[in-house]
Design a protein around this nucleic acid. Structure first.
Length: 583
DNA sequence: AGATGCGGGTTAT
DNA sequence: ATAACCCGCATCT
């Protein structure tokens, strides 16, 4: 488990590009999608960096060498991804310093958790250490309810009560974590930027005081937010706690500043900025997106290609200037469906001009990515000037439509669309051969080259070291300074792996060759956390093997499935039916 | 008791 | 149709 690669959140960028906001709006960080497209488009000669790119929803995630795993980061923040060893105990337990609770996303393959925020004092009191009350909410609903309303543990606080400060760091919703077990790795992806401090550990003295483990007489031993300092009550720890909290607060401020006042975007790496590219409901200060108010029902968030793009492209096409940039129709138009992760996998569309000009076929409430935003990535459209007062509001008649896969005009990278899932056990037999089909995913992908511009800029986005005050927030990872996806080769070639194959759940299908052996290496038994072993793994293994050969074979016809169930995907049940994989 | 995960169900958009 | 939540249950620590 010796991690060869050390990473911090800062070396992560990410792909949370499609976010349905609470009010129905959607944040589209098209920039990232484009970057992803770039990755997808690269052929097998592409650099290692590209191989680092993956999404928790990818039909096939990279294979990682045993020595290439990330060090566990319990304080992941921002849009980050990590790959942990399947033997990493912390990863296996899906641990997080943040108070993350299970969120039922009705996808048994990907565990989703959402942040509960922090418990704060209703009086916003200050402890002797100078720190604020910042406790970890109980994960258990019942326990958490008991926490709320309790007296503030700060002896200097009068009348203060503990109350939840909910996390709103992800488009106005709590930050979410996703866990997926695949092969010998555990894939972790976080979405959103916590808009609150790190909560004290459960065993902190303050926490104990607050929740009865320690009598209130011990109030004077407040130590602030120092992990591991519980009960120490030393001056040193007090200072440390205060310093830590102050730093966190500074970082929180920094986040907002980055999102709102980056007058000189080039001072921040794209990755760095992207990390803060959280989308709020446009009522949140964190939100970096502009949006269109749909007079009928929804308001559409138009993620500015994120500050990510702003920081680099500074395109003339950038909406800045407080003007509504008329959307154009660039040669390369990428469309993205705006369904949220884990349920309806994002679908990347590299639309043809025809498709690009096609009017959105779906509900007018669907969000659209402004082409001008996307065009910002086009070499010829680069310009100068970054403007924070972005109002990249394009009109629906000139935006990129988010279409279903059925409207794909060209081979495109596409992600699993759970809405396409269907239980085949009783109906479909699109899966040829002896493989017992159960569930298939519409995951046609492509390897179509994208503009070299994006390729050229890949390094900028993905391999640039980003140091900022945000690092202060990553205290537990300060030593792992942005090694970025430097180690590589071990990553799956996305282009190969996705080359025109249709994805299917192999957890229920016989897998030829070595995949079987791989399967046997995995621990499916007993553990409470074993259920997230990727049911796709077999197929991934197959694809991995296939990709090792020269040319990808022509893709089999993508399965066309219909999802019958309301919204549940009982892969486990399907699996059990074939008794090839245990739960 | 609480953490954790599962999954049926509801609600809002 | 989609995703956020709520809830009860089961298992484990």
């Amino acid at each position: 488990m010796t991690p060869k690669r050390q990473v911090t959140d800062d070396d992560e960028d990410d792909d949370d590009d499609v976010l349905p906001c609470a009010t129905g709006c959607v944040c589209v960080c098209a920039s990232v999608w484009i970057l992803r497209l770039n990755l997808w488009a690269r052929d097998s000669s592409m650099t290692h960096k590209t191989k680092r790119d993956w999404d928790i929803n990818d039909a096939i995630v990279p294979q990682v060498g045993d020595l290439e795993f990330d060090e566990f980061n319990e304080w992941s923040d921002g849009h980050v991804r990590h790959i942990y060893s399947l033997h990493n105990e912390e990863a296996k337990k899906h641990i997080s310093g943040w108070a993350m609770r299970n969120t039922n996303n009705h996808n048994v393959n990907i565990l989703k958790k959402s942040c509960l925020g922090v418990l704060i004092c209703s009086q916003h009191c200050t402890m002797p250490s100078g720190a604020k009350i910042n406790l970890r909410p109980a994960i258990c609903d019942k326990a958490r309810r008991k926490q709320e309303g309790r007296a503030c543990p700060n002896k200097n606080c009068r009348g203060g009560r503990l109350e939840i400060k909910p996390c709103r760091g992800h488009c106005g919703y709590p930050v979410t974590h996703f866990w997926r077990h695949s092969g010998n790795a555990i894939f972790f992806q976080a979405k959103g930027v916590h808009d609150h401090l790190r909560p004290d550990p459960k065993n902190s003295s303050v926490s104990k005081r607050a929740f009865g483990r320690v009598s209130l007489t011990g109030k004077s031993t407040a130590t602030g937010n120092v992990r591991g300092s519980a009960g120490s009550g030393t001056k040193k720890s007090v200072i440390a706690g205060l310093v830590k909290q102050v730093k966190q607060q500074q970082n929180l401020m920094g986040k907002s500043l980055k999102r709102t006042t980056s007058s000189n975007p080039l001072n921040h790496s794209a990755l760095e900025i992207y990390q803060f590219n959280a989308c709020g409901k446009c009522t949140y200060s964190h939100c970096t997106c502009s949006y269109l108010e749909d007079t009928t029902r929804n308001h559409h968030h138009h993620h500015q290609l994120g500050q990510t793009s702003n920081s680099y492209v500074t395109a003339n096409s950038w909406p800045g200037e407080s003007t509504v940039i008329p959307c154009e129709t660039p040669a390369n138009v990428f469309t993205v469906n705006h369904q949220h992760i884990t349920y309806n996998y994002p679908i990347y569309h590299h639309a043809t001009p025809t498709a690009a000009t096609a009017a959105p076929s779906k509900s007018p409430s669907l969000p659209y990515a402004c082409i001008s935003e996307l065009s910002a990535y086009q070499p010829g459209l680069r310009g100068g000037g970054y403007n924070n007062a972005i109002t990249n509001q394009c009109h629906t008649n000139s935006v990129i439509s988010y279409e279903s896969s059925s409207q794909l005009a060209t081979p495109e990278p596409e992600f699993i669309n759970y809405s396409q899932i269907k239980h085949l056990s009783h109906e479909t037999q699109s899966c040829k051969s002896e493989l017992p089909p159960t569930i298939k995913y519409n995951a046609t992908v492509e390897t179509q080259p994208v503009s070299s511009y994006m390729e050229d800029n890949y390094d900028y986005y993905y391999n640039r070291e980003s140091k900022s005050d945000y690092d202060l927030h990553q205290q537990f990872n300060s030593a792992n300074n942005t090694s970025l996806p430097s180690s590589t080769g071990h990553y799956y070639e996305s282009a190969n792996g996705y080359n025109g194959v249709s994805y299917f759940d192999t957890g229920t299908t016989a897998s030829p060759g070595h995949s079987q052996s791989v399967q046997t290496q995995l621990d499916h038994g007993g553990g409470s956390y074993g259920s997230y072993y990727d049911h796709y793994a077999n197929y991934e293994q197959q694809m991995a093997a296939a990709s090792s050969f020269a040319s990808p074979a022509p893709p089999p016809p993508p399965p066309t499935l219909t999802y019958h169930h309301h919204h549940h995907h009982h892969l486990h049940q399907a699996t059990a039916a074939t008794s090839s994989v245990t739960q």
